[in-house]
């Protein structure tokens, strides 16, 4: 076993493509009124910052991916991406 380190991990959860996103659509419709023209495909989601103890960045990413799949995202309508920040 290597020595365990703490990794800072970002998990982003968003709706799967094709799943209606009323929140994203509402934000998109509000933008022109604020002068932000030419912004499209707004999709809302959630972001989680975690500190994960693991032997390597890969192991930290794998663990975060697993917990994202089991808890942070509902795989029926959502998908997630994991980024190890350091």
């Amino acid at each position: 076993m290597g020595s365990s380190e703490t990794f800072s991990v970002l998990v982003e959860v968003r709706l799967r493509p094709g799943i209606a996103d009323p929140q994203g659509a509402t934000i998109e419709r509000a933008l022109p009124a604020l002068g932000f023209d030419g912004v499209r495909a707004v999709r809302s989601g959630k972001a989680f910052r975690l500190e994960v103890e693991a032997d390597s960045a890969e192991a930290a990413a794998a663990r975060a991916g697993e917990l994202a799949h089991r808890l942070l995202a509902n795989p029926v309508i959502e998908e997630s991406t994991v980024t190890v920040l350091g």
């Binding site: 009323p22 929140q23 509402t26 509902n74 029926v76 309508i77």
Partner: peptide, 11 residues
């Protein structure tokens, strides 16, 4: 049960 419950259309 299958499926999921999302935010209402119209929020």
């Amino acid at each position: 049960l299958p499926g999921a419950l999302q935010k209402n259309r119209g929020l």
